[in-house]
């Protein structure tokens, strides 16, 4: 348990300090990961001295790049992918799972006018974005801004109209339960029926310009379901606990109850699920770069080093060291998960 935390902390520190740990000047590893030596030491075994007296502690690869420096660069990629996809998965999974679990199908009330305008805003706003605004957007960030504006404007306008109409139509004023739980569960079902690794391989081998951000984006978009599912189950349990009822009696609002009272109680176990998620997304990244899809070709990663050992089996250092690091990382992430995995299996 403790070794896992220590190892992961060291990993993050190495990733943060990568440019100082391995560079061409006086660093502990006296090479940059990208420095090639096409004339000299290709596939040099560990400990070989380079022409200028610097030592390749863990050997070199096909292009004469230092393996130790490559491992440090790979650590940076792994931590980036793990943390990035986790942030994305949390951003999607925590709100959805928490709201679905805490409010269920009947706990969240909205006037009918509000609900209708929300749905209208999402449907009509997105459709209008697709038809017109998307053609005018200059980049992805631009596009997202347009989309949010489009949805917001449609929702706001229809809300104003429906609220005005509510003076005469009483049913528009009535509060209705939002079926959050059902919608979120349906979303989870649909996303988890996507064969993840297969879609990842397909999408990434199709893009012209591979980029790490796309890898992070897809892993996060596919992987949030595990976090949402866990948090939903956890909050289903927590919302029945006596202290929530006590807080409710003292007059705490429902949203405040969720964010300040119920959710903090679920964070401890969530860390464990998050660690497992990080382990599997780092593993997915290694698999992808092993296959040579998704990650830019000049980027040295653990997976790309492993891949090179396939072409030259004699270079055992290319197979052993990156695999060992990957294994330790995955094991450390798994180790944080104390209780059996069936806790988060479906009810």
């Amino acid at each position: 348990m403790r070794w896992a935390y220590a190892y992961l902390i060291v990993l993050v520190i190495v990733a943060l300090l990568a440019p100082w740990l391995a560079n061409d000047s006086a660093a502990p590893i006296p090479f940059r990961a990208e420095t090639t030596a096409l004339t000299g030491a290709r596939y040099a075994s560990p400990g070989t001295l380079a022409a200028d007296g610097r030592r390749h502690y863990l050997g070199t690869d096909r292009l004469g790049r230092d393996t130790a420096a490559g491992l440090v660069a790979g650590t940076r990629v792994a931590v980036l992918v793990g943390a990035g996809s986790l942030v994305l998965a949390l951003l999607i999974g925590v709100p959805l799972g928490a709201v679905a679990g805490f409010f269920g199908d009947g706990g969240l009330h909205l006037s009918r006018a509000g609900l209708v305008s929300l749905v209208l805003g999402l449907l009509v706003g997105s459709a209008y974005f697709w038809a017109s605004l998307a053609r005018l957007a200059a980049g992805p960030l631009h596009g997202v801004t347009y989309w949010v504006c489009s949805v917001g404007v449609v929702a706001a306008v229809s809300w104003l109209l429906l609220r005005a109409a509510g003076r005469w139509v009483a049913s528009l004023r009535q509060p209705v339960g939002v079926p959050v739980d059902r919608v979120v569960l349906l979303l989870i079902e649909l996303v988890s029926s996507i064969p993840g690794l297969v879609i990842l391989i397909v999408v990434l081998s199709l893009v012209r310009v591979p980029s790490l951000w796309l890898v992070i984006l897809i892993i996060g978009l596919i992987g949030w379901t595990s976090i949402a599912r866990f948090l939903r189950a956890e909050l289903l349990r927590i919302r029945e606990l006596p202290y929530i009822a006590a807080a409710r009696i003292t007059g705490v609002g429902e949203w405040r109850l969720l964010w300040r009272h119920a959710l903090p109680n679920a964070i401890g176990p969530l860390v464990v699920v998050a660690a497992f998620f990080v382990g599997s997304s780092i593993l997915a990244e290694a698999m992808l770069s092993f296959l040579g899809v998704g990650v830019p070709a000049d980027q040295v990663t653990w997976g790309s080093l492993l891949q090179q050992s396939r072409a030259r089996p004699e270079a055992w250092w290319l197979a052993v060291f990156p695999g060992l690091l990957l294994t330790l990382t995955v094991l450390a992430c798994n180790r944080l998960r104390r209780e059996g995995p069936e806790r988060q299996s479906r009810k």
Partner: peptide
């Protein structure tokens, strides 16, 4: 066994 990546 569960943790060691099988492709490695």
């Amino acid at each position: 066994g569960f943790g060691i990546p099988s492709f490695w």
